[in-house]
Design a protein around this nucleic acid. Structure first.
Lengths: 213, 213
DNA sequence: ATTAAAGTGACCACACTGGTCAAGTAGACA
DNA sequence: TGTCTACTTGACCAGTGTGGTCACTTTAAT
């Protein structure tokens, strides 16, 4: 388990979040080279000197964010997910909700994560992921999942992708609406998710399976 | 119908594409402000003077790309799509193939389009779209479509989104693989698309509907 | 040989860069 | 109160890159 040196840990929670969010915003809107430490400190409301006191250099700051962004979601999933839930649809919904809660705290997390992936091969990325959060990658969508709930048992891979993609697109849609100023209640979102779950269940589950909800 | 002034029309096809692709790449990797005309001319293999001969300014170049990227896909769809096809799944597949053909010519088209959307509200964007390609927005997924093919007639909106999202994600996946150097034959892609169509048809279509394929 | 059009790249004034560091501030203890 | 410590500040630096210009060269048709 890798721990990066930084001097943020002792800071006030609010201040720490402001710095992380400001830096994430800057790095998600620009490439590493063009991201400006000046703008980061301006948005974070701290001085240049402080930033370079917390992190030795721009590079160290970026590496910290990289580690942070990989961990913050994975940690939340590991901690909050019901690993006993055998119904993949219910589990995916739980993951979506967990992810969105984290993203509400760190609005630029998803965009920043995309930037990380941009410059790294799939294998490289998996290796880094393994280092920070071992084994999570395969567990989430497989451990204890009851695939016999599916109507067909031939096109499992395709069906799984359709389910995952649907919820990913919903999440992206939701975040886009948030960013453009719309104020969405968590209940509305939950209702919408449930509506899609009903449709997907009808489409891909056996008729006699009604696990819950 | 708006036509922007530019001096590219008379140019050699290859050269024109090189300039457009180079500029699209730069503007999709950086914000307008930080995009560099120096790097654009370098990648395009032309001189600074030429670029500012073709376009009066950086701004005009950007506006040209904006217009171009909205039109190039819409024009291809309008021209090549079989507007009589009543099966939405078949039609969506056709659209995916048409889009990907265009994207193969202009690899940064999708990323650049996202950038355009970033700085504009949904309504603004629809207005611009209307201006360049009137009415296409609603026609594509509705004109002559036979919705009675669906098993359920209650959750049409949700079902449609699942279908569209699935193919969008497939397209994104495909482009990502292209960009990371993978060489994918058009037949392989077509087979993969067909596999998903089978799954979706089983899930959401009436049992007795077998329109084609 | 002449002419016009197309293409070039050194050059400009200036904005902004990551990082430093001497000076300033706040609070704890005496 | 004065002193010490740890944190915070922002003016400053040398260097890089900016959008745009224009006097010049090359190309191609007459």
């Amino acid at each position: 388990m890798i721990i990066l040196e930084d001097r943020l840990s002792g800071l006030d929670e609010k201040k720490r979040m402001k710095i992380i969010n400001s830096a994430m915003e800057e790095f998600s809107r620009n490439t590493y080279q063009k991201a400006s430490t000046n703008r980061i400190v301006e948005k974070a409301g701290i001085s240049k000197g402080s930033l370079f006191n917390y992190f030795k250099s721009k590079k160290k700051l970026y590496e910290y964010l990289e580690m942070f962004s990989i961990r913050v979601i994975a940690d939340a999933v590991v901690e909050k997910l019901d690993w006993k839930e055998p119904d993949i649809l219910t589990r995916i919904k739980d993951i979506v909700i967990i992810k969105l809660e984290v993203c509400r705290k760190y609005p630029y997390l998803l965009e920043f994560s995309k930037r990380i992936y941009e410059n790294k091969s799939v294998d490289e990325m998996k290796a880094i992921f393994e280092e920070y959060v071992p084994n999570i990658y395969d567990k989430v969508y497989h451990e204890n999942i009851d695939f016999s709930l599916f109507k067909e048992d031939k096109e499992i891979k395709e069906t799984m992708n359709i389910l995952i993609w649907t919820f990913e697109k919903m999440g992206e849609d939701y975040l886009k609406r948030i960013e453009s100023g719309e104020r969405i209640k968590i209940d509305e979102l939950s209702d919408e998710v449930d509506r899609y779950i009903v449709v997907l269940r009808k489409g891909f589950y056996r008729r006699d399976s009604r696990t819950r909800e």
